[in-house]
Design a protein around this nucleic acid. Structure first.
Lengths: 212, 212
DNA sequence: GTCTATAAACAGATAGAC
DNA sequence: GTCTATCTGTTTATAGAC
């Protein structure tokens, strides 16, 4: 007796898969609520509600609120930047590199408004809970490394590689990105769309001139 | 009958002054606790305790937790940067300007560790409570204006003023400052002491070259 | 003006039904 | 594996003593 499990185009929900789906829905909902209310302000009940489950479902899939947050921290911190950088790498050529980053800035500040809030929550949590700091540090380093590779490729296409390490440049670009996104959220007029490109243009020019 | 009020070097505590002193102690304690625990995580009781008062003292001097926080937001946001910039202005000449900012960065990240946490709390609060956004925006603008003046004076001493507006430069320096401080708190090795100076050097060089 | 005591609401986490 | 009910602790804010 196979029951109606193999019938139809549907059917594919192992217990493990069903559990994984629940976990995913809870994690998505948690990201939303943590971004909106902050770690302390977010309630487990609201996370569960928004995912379409009850409180019990959260505690049967995660140890608790803290572990749920840490799982997001370890898997989602900076992921948008890494992804977006990859998109830029695939879709743009060297001259479009900077304007691509400029668009990334305005998109992050104006459209994906949860990103920077969640980033700030991760940062504050790590600052207050040293045991989570190494985790965030390694995620940030991953993102910076991705950006470094992008920069190196972009520069090598222009025949100006190998002379200086781009490492500090990547760190600077990264810091500038977050700083400008934050400022644009508070006072959009003070951070016009092309300011990031402008800054990168000056920065790169000065960096190149410093090779001699 | 004057009572023993005019006697001794002490005695100077009008009710108004005594009240002002209590308010000040509560505000100082509040800044500490909000920085350590966050807006939601900070309890009125802990603020009162740390100031040496009880819960009732808070509610007799402020409308509540929210107004206490908003008073800090409206008076202390970015004040350290404005103050520090003024110190730099008074104590340093043009060539020392950049290294002065570099020291400000490491001090802010390593010594006055409450500053950036409180800044992040202000930012998150404003992002989540639009009625407070204009207040933070104006405080940020004040700080940026102060930095602008510093830049203009520093540049005019080198005879290269008036050609271009420094406004965008001030915004960039500001964003970079916060971005690097945040990154240094998480991963100090990725933000060496002279990175900020290095970045400013490249940025200014590129900016100058862009005049033509 | 500040304190103590308390009210009223809400949180994270657990136990047991299904 | 998920839900309902509940336990326990904590929170903001207020009322009334002093």
């Amino acid at each position: 007796m196979v029951e109606n499990q193999g019938s139809g185009a549907r059917r594919r929900l192992t217990r493990a898969e069903s559990r994984a789906r629940t976990r995913q829905l809870l994690l998505d909902a948690a990201a939303d609520v943590f971004a909106e209310k902050g770690y302390t302000g977010a309630s487990v009940e609201e996370i569960a509600d928004r995912a379409g489950y009850s409180i019990g479902a959260v505690y049967s899939n995660f140890e608790g609120k803290q572990q749920l947050f840490l799982e997001l921290l370890s898997t989602r911190a900076e992921s948008r930047i890494a992804d977006a950088a990859q998109v830029l790498k695939d879709s743009e050529d060297a001259p479009g590199f900077r304007s691509g980053l400029g668009r990334l800035l305005t998109d992050t500040a104006d459209q994906d408004i949860e990103f920077e809030s969640l980033h700030a929550e991760f940062w504050l949590y790590a600052v207050r809970n040293p045991e989570a700091m190494a985790m965030l540090a390694s995620r940030l380093q991953e993102a910076r490394t991705g950006l470094e590779q992008l920069l190196e490729e972009s520069l090598s296409e222009r025949g100006e590689s190998a002379a200086k390490p781009v490492h500090p440049l990547a760190t600077i670009v990264f810091a500038l990105f977050h700083g400008l996104v934050q400022q644009r959220r508070i006072d959009p007029e003070s951070v016009p769309e092309d300011l990031f490109d402008q800054a990168l243009s000056w920065l790169f020019a000065g960096w190149r001139a410093d090779r001699f």
